[in-house]
Design a protein around this nucleic acid. Structure first.
Lengths: 263, 263
DNA sequence: GTCAGTGTGTACGCACAGCGTACACCTCGA
DNA sequence: TCGAGGTGTACGCTGTGCGTACACACTGAC
């Protein structure tokens, strides 16, 4: 036994190298490397070429990857992995029709997000119009501290979670309006908790407006944030507050009721 | 060397057991087992409990899984795996605004799908209304032979692919209207190829109507199918043909032009 | 109280899975 | 013809990953 301190919960013996490496190979496919060659993947991941080849062949047999004259690419089966997350979280399926209705009523994109680490992650979404410069889809991550959904999720999160998000690293001013001061954010979170909803204007991206309300499980714990997003051209902070927030609260309450009932 | 014939392309030596097993553990989470216990996962997968535990700890370290007093669950990070498919296929990002526009013009859900094995897989989607009994999302698979998207994809697919889809197993009549006779389907595919689009009525689900058109890459190969779906209550085969098909063809052409230009 | 049936963690030793090195080959462009 | 890219695969060693076995905690039945 080495003298080194145990950093993590579990010993190194419980780590399965091949699994981690294999997934790393899968994740090496991205925008910059949509159809990499074997050697390219070897360079990206840092694993030997034979090793990468073994992983690729395994993934190919499982249907996640396809090899075509020296180039490899992901198959749509990769998308089915995410389906298992969706399928195992009843809340998401329950929310879908409510998101559709909200989007129809507001003529704006409706989203549901969950907290994961420092980020709010979109887990369901009905897009109506392109509002952000990036293409938002299910799985997209946005920093919690600078979004209405994140604020809602943090407002009711346990203290250690909030602490870690606000203090682990210095918060970056994504736009000139982004609130980055931890104590100012804490005050804002308190306000959100008190009023029961959040509105954030242009803190993630110029021109972007969004409002959010909490969705709870049967025990009353906040498990997700419902949001409606628009742009300064189409709406304003005041109008969001007047027209959208009530709809959000209603919709969130309906989801909460239905989800609490079935969970 | 055994006398047994080599069935697959690659030898067994090139198979990485731990990767396949680890992913199997990840996939063991589903609707029926949203928060399984370690022992439960061991039973589902058939792997020994210590083995499953090692995989879980590895996955937990990677952020895909979370353990909470004896129960395990998937984290939203699982969704990010699918993002790599989306990111590595420029067509999908290119299509998004066109899908939005199509959905707005038709007031119906717009979808983009790709062929994978026997299925059409939704790779991008703008939902407007719940039309199917199942919740359709990105990653959802539907049998190619019984859907307009699948028909389009098969109409321009290489012969061996068509053969395998139509003849590997007897085609099931999903609804009373489903065409299951291979030669009738071949004739239908020829018709689709000739007219340049497909309309399918109530072959996948009663009351479900959909129209589809091909999207091509710069080499002219059909790489995806664009579709608009509605229900018999809101439209008819004739109306689809008259009003929706022209819009589909226009939109598909626009996507093809933009995608061909940038790829 | 005790027993059976859940569940959990972990120690340990063996086997072979997975590793990288090394070599052979192909294709392209200079 | 050479070098620089790519590919596949043989092979032997290492140590990863395997399952068995044991210890323990909690629950409900009787």
């Amino acid at each position: 036994m080495s003298v080194g301190e145990r950093e993590s919960t579990h010993g190194d013996r419980d780590h399965v190298q091949s699994l981690e490496r294999g997934i790393a190979v899968l994740l090496a496919f991205d925008e910059e490397h949509p159809e990499p060659t074997l050697a390219e993947l070897s360079r990206i991941t840092g694993f030997s070429r034979p090793a990468v080849r073994r992983f690729l062949i395994t993934l190919e047999r499982m249907g996640y990857v396809r090899g075509h004259d020296g180039r490899w690419s992901l198959t749509p089966r990769v998308l089915s992995i995410g389906q298992h997350y969706t399928a195992s979280h009843a809340l998401i399926e329950v929310s879908q029709p409510h998101l559709l209705r909200l989007a129809e009523e507001t003529h704006e994109s409706a989203s549901l997000a969950t907290l994961d680490g420092d980020d709010a992650v979109y887990v369901a979404r009905v897009p109506v119009r392109r509002i952000m410069s990036i293409n938002v889809s299910v799985g997209t991550r946005v920093p919690a501290y600078a979004t209405s959904m994140g604020r809602v999720l943090l407002a009711w999160a346990p203290t250690p979670v909030v602490d870690s998000v606000l203090h682990r690293r210095p918060l970056r001013a994504i736009t000139p309006s982004t609130v980055t001061d931890p104590s100012a954010l804490r005050a804002e979170l308190a306000r959100v908790r008190e009023q029961g909803w959040a509105v954030v204007a242009e803190e993630l991206e110029a021109g972007l407006l969004s409002a959010s309300a909490p969705v709870r499980d049967r025990s009353g714990q906040v498990v997700a944030a419902l949001a409606s997003s628009t742009s300064v051209g189409r709406s304003s902070r005041g109008e969001l507050q007047r027209r959208v927030v009530p709809l959000l609260l209603e919709t969130a309450a309906r989801i909460t009721a239905e989800f609490g009932g079935r969970a």
